[in-house]
């Protein structure tokens, strides 16, 4: 009985969590493309103007990021200026929650059919590597190891801390700048 009563609140909290995580991730994708050369090199292979979307089916939370050229991303929030070119779609909010709460790795989510790719698969592979790189920077190692297939042995603490600080600062600045009055 109690479970039945609190269930709507749990669902609402889960949706809110996913929504907030998408907002953080979108801004962090823009930030990491401004601070990390590896991400820039990955992104350079994407066509300029490519719109990437990550969303929850059917009309759930979403983030939209554009490759504005030379390896830089721009976060568009949850609405795209034109039809997106590449979309990674979670089949259900529960699946998005599993990934965004680091209970399931992104690669596992693909393997477990939690997500669909609509668009060029090679770009989706690239964006997955960018997301993994981002997660290794912004998450503590113990959590990042749960989020990515393999934590890079070459990423040492000083580089991680400096990059994470720069990314978080940019994310926070972006939040302030884009906060609605």
């Amino acid at each position: 009985m109690l479970l039945k009563r609190i269930q709507p609140m749990v669902f609402q909290a889960r949706r809110l969590y996913v929504d907030i995580m998408f907002q953080v991730m979108g801004r962090a994708l823009q930030a990491v493309s401004e601070v990390d050369e590896t991400v820039q090199n990955e992104a350079r292979a994407l066509p300029q103007g490519l719109l990437f979307e990550m969303m929850v089916m059917p009309e759930g939370p979403r983030l939209i990021v554009e490759h504005i050229g030379d390896g830089y991303f721009h976060y568009h929030g949850d609405s795209a200026p034109r039809p997106v070119d590449l979309s990674i779609q979670f089949k259900h909010i529960a699946h998005a929650f599993l990934v965004l709460s680091f209970q399931e790795k992104t690669s596992e989510a693909f393997a477990n059919d939690r997500m669909l790719v609509d668009g060029d698969v090679s770009y989706a592979v690239r964006m997955t590597r960018v997301l993994n790189r981002l997660e290794t920077f912004i998450l503590p190692k113990l959590i990042a190891e749960r989020a990515v297939k393999e934590y890079p042995a070459s990423l040492h603490l000083p580089e991680k801390l400096i990059s994470a600080a720069r990314i978080y600062l940019k994310v926070a600045t972006n939040f302030v700048e884009t906060a609605r009055p």
């Binding site: 292979a45 690669s107 693909f110 393997a111 790719v117 698969v121 090679s122 989706a124 592979v125 690239r126 997955t128 993994n132 990515v148 297939k149 393999e150």
Partner: peptide, 13 residues
């Protein structure tokens, strides 16, 4: 090869 879709399912990154 690094851009091929099947690399996503390889057990090692």
């Amino acid at each position: 090869a690094l851009d091929d879709g099947s690399i996503m399912f390889n057990p090692k990154e």
